[in-house]
């Protein structure tokens, strides 16, 4: 019989294991594109948070000396303190761009977070319980998806007036739908793997099976999809703002800045479009390449 001959203190020091996460981290460090993207995103994040400290201006101050002569006096220059120039009202574009990046990133990240929490929960439950529950839950998703949400959101914004909260509600409504579908599909395939079966035989309660056996095996897919969702959400917000329905003055976002810059293009103030657009594009590419890199790192066999 096994006896207690093995006392806890006599146990040898356990050797450290190499988890799949550690493997993935090692692989992504060797991926130059993903690491460059990550670095660019970190720098942009630092710019969004710390940038305003480098300037004497705030995002709402109007430089009255520039007003009316933006084309020449509001040019980007180190001497004037307007590193990125000013907008058509004489407000410092450097600080406003930092502000816009901050708002856009926030919108993207909040949208992704809603997708992660709601979509993952919804998808795992539908997939794991299965049967009629699954059918009802997923058909509901289909119905919500079939509604032209952009149209609905525009009507809502027109009726209730523009507000950040309504924008987040709109983003929250649409962002989790695709996630729920993806997660459900993954859950269905994980549910039939032998280790879940063995947990069922052991008698692990269903909630614990979802928590311990299904969710950790979903995390990879969820992270990748969330990373790819952030730029989509930023585009979504930019589009609403571009139409003039999203973020309100004096608050700003990349979409608002690009929209304003585009409307001033013909007056020789191209920097008003150029700087916000540059950050917008770098953020988009950064998240796409980072998401791609994470996917490759988590699933090396899947690489083509």
């Amino acid at each position: 019989m096994i006896s207690s001959r093995l006392q806890p203190e006599s146990l040898p020091e356990p050797e450290p294991g190499r988890s799949l996460w550690q493997d993935a981290r090692r692989r992504i460090r060797q991926n130059p594109v993903a690491m460059t993207s990550f670095l660019a995103l970190v720098l942009i994040g630092a710019f969004a948070v710390l940038g305003p400290l480098l300037s004497d201006w705030s995002s709402e101050d109007i430089n009255w000396n520039v007003l009316g002569n933006v084309e020449t006096a509001g040019r980007p220059a180190l001497g004037s303190g307007h590193y990125f120039g000013t907008d058509q009202l004489g407000r410092d574009l450097f600080v406003r761009t930092a502000h816009g990046v901050r708002v856009s990133l926030m919108v993207g990240i909040i949208g992704a977070l809603i997708a992660i929490v709601v979509g993952t929960l919804y998808g795992t439950i539908a997939g794991y319980v299965g049967g009629r529950t699954d059918n009802i839950m997923m058909r509901t998703v289909d119905v919500i998806m079939s509604i032209p949400y952009m149209f609905v959101l525009i009507i809502l914004l027109v009726i209730f007036g523009q507000s950040m909260i309504l924008l987040f509600v709109g983003i929250g409504l649409v962002s989790w739908l695709d996630m729920a579908r993806i997660v459900r599909g993954q859950t269905l395939s994980i549910k039939n793997r032998e280790f879940v079966e063995s947990a069922v035989v052991i008698g692990v309660p269903p909630a614990l099976i979802i928590l311990r056996h299904i969710l950790p095996n979903l995390v990879g897919v969820v992270i990748v999809y969330a990373t790819l969702l952030i730029p989509n959400m930023i585009i979504f917000e930019s589009f609403i703002s571009f139409l003039g329905l999203g973020i309100q003055e004096p608050n700003t976002s990349l979409g608002v800045l690009i929209s304003e810059g585009a409307s001033q293009m013909q007056y020789g103030v191209l920097w008003q479009l150029g700087f916000p657009l540059f950050f917008f594009i770098v953020i988009q590419f950064g998240f796409f390449f980072l998401g791609d890199g994470i996917r490759d790192a988590l699933d090396p066999k899947d690489r083509h």
Binding site: I2, S4, L11, P12, E15, G17
Partner: peptide
């Protein structure tokens, strides 16, 4: 639990020092 895991591992011919390893190893 840790003690019993170590005992059982030893009984089936696995070194108890391997507890923190992952299945793919």
């Amino acid at each position: 639990i840790r003690r019993r895991v170590a005992e059982t591992m030893e009984r089936v011919g696995l070194a108890p020092a391997l507890v923190n390893r992952y299945p793919h190893e």
